[in-house]
Design a protein around this nucleic acid. Structure first.
Lengths: 153, 153
DNA sequence: CAAAATTAAATTGTGCGCAACTAAAAACGC
DNA sequence: GCGTTTTTAGTTGCGCACAATTTAATTTTG
């Protein structure tokens, strides 16, 4: 191992870590969604799946995973629970039996009517933040994600 | 339920959600730490616990939890795994048997020498980002966490 | 066409997070 | 002092995340 220059004093303090700020903020955000989602009987990751399907119904697990950055190991059981709750249906594509088509049921589509209240429930708590600042924050996070995922920038 | 004004068109798209940007960035960050932590035999939350203990050894589960925003339901099994790995010791406080004092072992203290390489491994990937921008991002995330946690601002 | 390679989803196993609950010890109130 | 309340960890149960592997269907190749 090559010896390198020392880190600045206190560089390893928890309260200076970007990673911890992210980790804590994400958990706080999930908690903020929890009451509103509880009323719909959804978990937070299930809600994210529905956000995708409400925009574009009838997707393969692969396509859902690409948008959510999740693999079948996470999605398969999650989708089975959504299916058991009567929110989505899971059917093999007859043209390619490897593929599973995930489709909203009538109930799943009806749930969309309640999404605005979920959105507002969290938006209210951020009411004192500038929307522009929040949009900028989101953009920075997307850029950070790209960088961390080995974006060849 | 009171009827409210409509949400802006596309407000519910996944790629416009701050919550998803956070969620994705946190998972990308955890992944970025994974290779370096694997070499130490640590998980990411275990590393966070050690960051705290390296700053201040001999803490109660309560105090650790306060800094990490985690409860005993998460920390108890995590600390038991760190104990099994010989990294921390867990002992009841003789003055108050409710309390559990978590202390680094010699091995746990030695691990600190390898922390800078973990830090650098991730810092390298962010090398093209301005340190000031990253610091600002961290501060915004801390503020966001406070707001979401019902900070009476 | 048959073997090999690729693709898509499912499965297995581990470790969080967190809500809800329990157990035990200490502090408090009268 | 003694019953009540509070505090601190631990336990239980569920649902992610994700690495690693498996299974099965399709595509590619020789």
């Amino acid at each position: 191992m090559a010896k390198r220059s020392e880190l600045p004093e206190g560089a390893l303090r928890l309260d200076r870590q970007l990673c911890f700020a992210l980790y804590a903020a994400t958990r706080a955000m999930t908690q903020a969604y929890h009451p509103a989602l509880d009323a719909l009987g959804l978990t937070y990751p299930q809600y994210l799946v529905l956000l995708v399907l409400w925009e574009e119904d009838d997707l393969m697990v692969k396509e859902l995973g690409a948008q959510l950055m999740l693999d079948s190991g996470t999605l398969t059981p999650l989708l089975k629970r959504l299916e058991a709750a009567g929110i989505v249906s899971r059917r093999r594509d007859p043209d390619d039996e490897r593929r599973l088509r995930v489709t909203l049921t009538a109930h799943g589509r009806r749930l969309r009517a309640k999404a605005p209240s979920v959105y507002r429930c969290v938006a209210e708590r951020l009411a004192d933040q500038s929307p522009r600042e929040l949009a900028k924050l989101r953009e920075q996070l997307v850029a950070l994600t790209q960088t961390l995922k080995g974006d060849p920038s």
